[in-house]
Amino acid sequence: MTPKQLIKTILSTCQDLASEGLVTFFNSQIEVAAGERTIVTYPNRTGSTTRVLPFGSLEQYLAWLRNCEFTCLLFDHSLIRVSYECAGDAILGHNLLYWPCPVEFADHVDDWRDLTDAIEIYLKSPSEAGEIFTMTLRSPMRFDFDPGRDGEDHPLVHLHSQFRDTRIHVHQPMCFQAFIKMIFRTFYASKWHKYAFIGQFHEQKISHNPGEWEPTAHYLQLYWT
């Protein structure tokens, strides 16, 4: 899959989800040249400034939301950010983040600007935000496919969760549709059953070790070694 095809696929998947209200906003992915490779990623409007924020911190979630630096925002304000590293039509790496909304509101909040306002209030004065929402402390999950750094402490495909340096071995890399399927099947079972079209998203094989690829089962699989 070429970078342009990949961008188109991500966009059309987001549009399909948005048409059912499962995604409330999405950005167009962009191409960024990296030597002979191309990174397909979300718009990065603030450069590296938000990357220095602690992994999984409320400040980081707030900054990405406020600057609209994500691929798409789910109906419950959970955030999805994906980047793929491509060369020609091959996918050489990925970085797929699913960040469940870290707060739960007393009332439904339509506008994510209200959400950022509320989080700002919390960061300034936690007691004041008590009447608006409760913290759920759900950790972000980032699935990395990073062949260049494959090693004993750095599995080829791994999951970051809770801690920046925790790498849980994951069976195989995922295309965008497989990632979306995994999210809905694992975390939103009722939606998964209600919206059958999600299960029908066409998946692309990402060859990370030719000959060993198997169809994914769309739920989180962890292989411990």
């Binding site: 306002d117 209030i121 009447e131 608006i132």
Partner: peptide
């Protein structure tokens, strides 16, 4: 009073 509370 913040905006979110006021809106509510």
């Amino acid at each position: 009073i913040n905006y979110v509370s006021a809106k509510n």
